[in-house]
Design a protein around this nucleic acid. Structure first.
Lengths: 211, 211
DNA sequence: TAGATTGTTAATCGATTAACAATC
DNA sequence: TAGATTGTTAATCGATTAACAATC
């Protein structure tokens, strides 16, 4: 039970799925779920589920499994989603605008506080309740509002530069929605959302099925 | 050199990155890239890069590395992106609308031919050049237009049912943008886009950095 | 030629699974 | 109690890395 120590990356990925599923079960009034129940719906083995949950300070109950409410609570906290992460969106194209208004983010603890774009035709217009700001405001806004996360929704060609500006402005984590690989200092976390990459994986998977 | 045989999933994921980077190098007029060059920009070892590329019928050149144009060509084909995949979007919320208009998809070989929603206030309105259709039209549209891919952009609560309708209508691959896990018959490929899950991973990563 | 880089094998490392005693 | 399920160890499996001969 190596608590506090880092959880293996693949286990972290699966924990996001356990969390989503436990939430759903909770909503449906299910009080308990077994490792084999989780495994079956998510296409894993029960061993993997139990192994993963051993990274978290939470015990199941013999004969019944894991409390769904307990799982939601402990996984939310293990993933760091038991707080609001103040975030901003860089790039107000179709995708940036959609993400800024995506209710699911707020529900999961990611609070979009600002939207930025350098296109002067966009600055001053509104995205939901937020007004588009120019990137000259970035640094002030990030420090005054304690923004931690930047969501990168600019075109691929502008992605690295926008990332540099975000880092310079003081954010500590980046969600990259472009296909470009982003380089950052080692104390900045970057996660790629891989939307286009996922379509390519899908393309490969369909091809493989056809053979 | 096990050609034709399946490429390990993790190698497929990296290949999408090699492809994106090779495209960028090509665009910038770079003719050659070495395994260590690719490794450095993508945060891998050169061994991994060479091992991955051994799954593909393509040779590097001693002293120079890999031809960027050659890489683009062979990776595009290995991933199955050397053709147009006719696709539709299910769910015309913020996200669905944005994805339907996202130019990057078309550029990569994914051609969005239709958008569907069951909200009667949305049916008949336009998303770019496409008119929103009700799901009663799904089956006919999919078979008449040889649609292969369904992009699932409905709310989590409606995701499984929408997936069922897509499968029933005859699609063979699904890109799931909701957090919900989707169950499908074994001959249907599903890839999760994991946007919200990526934010949770980011949250964990930032937490880990802070410690 | 000398040096850089590939392709491939073998070694290492990490992740998954199987198995089973402990528990309720 | 008997049976189901956890938590954990050990075994297996797969993925990554190191090393190096072959090549240009």
């Amino acid at each position: 039970m190596p608590f506090n120590s880092t959880i293996p990356p693949l286990a972290v990925k699966r924990m996001t799925e356990y969390l989503a599923h436990a939430r759903e079960l909770c909503r449906n009034g299910e009080e308990w779920v077994s490792s084999s129940g989780l495994a079956e719906t998510l296409g894993l083995t029960s061993s993997t589920v139990r192994q993963d949950l051993s990274h978290v300070e939470f015990s199941g109950t013999s004969k019944r499994g894991y409390s769904t409410a307990g799982l939601v609570q402990v996984l939310t906290s293990a993933l760091g989603a038991d707080r609001q992460w103040r975030s901003i969106v860089m790039g107000v194209g179709n995708l940036g605008r959609a993400l800024a208004q995506h209710r699911e983010f707020e529900r999961q603890g990611f609070d979009i506080c600002g939207v930025f774009d350098d296109d002067c035709r966009k600055v001053g217009t509104h995205v939901g309740e937020l007004m588009v700001q120019p990137t000259t405001e970035l640094k002030t806004f990030v420090s005054e509002n304690q923004i931690k996360i930047g969501i990168l929704a600019v075109p691929a060609t502008a992605a690295q530069e926008a990332a540099n500006e975000l880092v310079e402005a003081g954010i500590t984590g980046l969600l990259n929605l472009s296909i470009t690989h982003i380089a950052t200092p080692r104390d900045i976390a970057v996660v790629d959302a891989r939307i286009v990459a996922s379509l390519l994986e899908l393309s490969y998977a369909i091809k493989a099925l056809e053979e």
